[in-house]
Amino acid sequence: MTTDNEDDIIATLSDYVEGTLPAAKKTEVEAKLATDATWKRIHGELVETTKSHDEISGLLKARKEPAPESFTNDVTATIHKRSAGLFFGRRTFGDRVPFSALLVVAVIGLLVIGYILWSSQTGSLKMDKRRGETPGSSIEVVPKP
């Protein structure tokens, strides 16, 4: 209550008029109302608007607009139309493309390829046919008779 900001005064006085203000604050408000012109003016406005509010609110509520009868069908049809019938039904990866998972897979794949190239003796992904062959396995030491 130390501030005289009009928004704060309105908020406090709204609670006062609605009777939701704690007793201690109520006494403070009443003291302000007795001495402060701004507080008095806003209180007067609030009392006036509260009087007319029920009537205005009643008029507005009585004229609630229901949605058109076909609304549910229309909105469902719009979804079907926009998605070519694919919107309903769970997607394999959910609704979002799992970019982070795809990135991890791509990085791992690149690392594997990089490692193969680095460790390859041919300098490519081709296997070195001679690698791992022992001299005896390719040359027949004892010729066939």
């Binding site: 709204s14 406005e45 608007t49 007319s52 509010h53």
Partner: peptide, 26 residues
């Protein structure tokens, strides 16, 4: 915030009352 909603509501009701005054019974 709570205070802003209350003050806007009050100002809105004041403006509405002014506009609808001639159509109201009270």
């Amino acid at each position: 915030p709570d205070g802003t909603v209350k003050s806007r509501l009050h100002r809105a009701r004041l403006a509405l009352r002014k506009k609808l005054q001639k159509h109201m019974t009270s």
